[in-house]
Write a protein that binds this DNA or RNA. Structure first.
Lengths: 203, 203
DNA sequence: ATAATAAATGACACGGTGTCACCTGTCAAT
DNA sequence: ATTGACAGGTGACACCGTGTCATTTATTAT
């Protein structure tokens, strides 16, 4: 959290600083961003930055959550609009996000936020469950899975199902570590989610 | 990718170096890890490190993929064991992973790998779709959603469904950026996955 | 024995971080 | 008007990490 001094700042100076920070975080991912660039661009001395923020991350998370907050509320509204259809609401939300993105001046900022290491790790994770190593394997898997599955009609669907399961598994794993869950807790969550997924896909 | 010189190294020296790197990446997340510590711990001069690897990330990704590779093959075997039941296979895989984790000497390494920034960003992302702001909202959402949904019986399930959708959405978003997909491509993928999810949950 | 090639080495230039002793401006009390 | 106290401003500095490169050393081929 920014320090009190940050909030005591006159509006224009605060905006200048935030703008400089956003510019820097748009240029490169957080871990490559430098405070030196921010203060240079904002025209404030180095020491002042530390008067306002704990460190680089502090400023970054403030910006991120500030941007997130502007989207608050949308979801409920959309849910009402689509009469409780969760998927229609979320699809609309996703669509809006993608649609607005190219026009958004903070596109690079968001891009960096989402790319930030994550995809590298997900790629590695995908490798653990890699089923695309060669066509033979995929055929084999397809045959095996079709014994059980109702809804997977073609290869594209199979790929997507694996995507879904991978991302949910990944999410569970990250959550387990982040919230320091016990083995039992983690398995319990995982099973609940897998069962929900299962219902839709099985004979 | 490590350079050729790395592979030319005598086995014991290579192991010492890898061990030192793993130790450092277990101590802190990649972006905090330092080459200085690795070379000090491995007892090699700084310049040598750059003889073997491009940079820190290079060594890190090598270690990660090396560890991932040891799990290769498991998945197909499990799939056969469970006669093509995708969920049983993946659940078993997850279970094994969690079960083995505490005994694994590289626990901290894996922990850092999964925590590495990701959860911070996911948390922010969750905030965008935040439906847990207050009980009232959750009730409201629950009522709305139950008009459409078949399988969500209690609040816990609702929470998990939202988790699933969030993580799939998140995954799609990261993928879109990582693979520089067009709007159409991204929406297409997203819709396919949402439809697969939908089938299981709707009246 | 010699040349050629590959690898090893560590000092160094560069750039970034966070701190701290000191400076400045403001404002209430005298 | 003067003082002191205090919040905030400032930038030089100590420290640490990166990647490079000229030089040295080892290895191999001729």
């Amino acid at each position: 959290m920014p320090k009190q001094t940050f909030y005591n700042l006159p509006e224009d100076k605060r905006q200048t600083l935030l703008y400089a920070a956003e510019k820097e975080f748009s240029r490169v991912p957080v871990y490559e961003a430098s405070i030196s660039n921010i203060v240079k661009s904002a025209g404030i001395p180095r020491g002042s930055f530390y008067q306002y923020f704990e460190d680089k991350e502090d400023a970054y998370l403030f910006l991120l959550s500030q941007q997130a907050r502007t989207r608050q509320g949308n979801f409920i509204t959309l849910l009402q609009k689509y009469d409780g259809d969760l998927f229609d609401a979320i699809t609309e939300m996703y669509r809006l996000l993608l649609k607005e993105l190219p026009e958004q001046e903070n596109l690079d900022f968001l891009k960096n936020a989402f790319l930030n290491m994550t995809h590298k790790i997900e790629n590695i994770f995908n490798r653990i469950f890699d089923v695309n190593e060669n066509r033979e394997q995929l055929k084999e898997i397809s045959t095996l899975i079709n014994k059980q599955c109702l809804n997977i009609s073609d290869e594209k669907d199979l790929h997507h199902v694996i995507q879904i399961i991978t991302s949910v598994t990944f999410h569970n794993l990250v959550e387990k570590f982040a919230k320091e869950m016990s083995y039992e807790e983690a398995m319990d969550n995982f099973n609940t989610e897998m069962n929900l997924l299962k219902k839709g896909l099985y004979k």
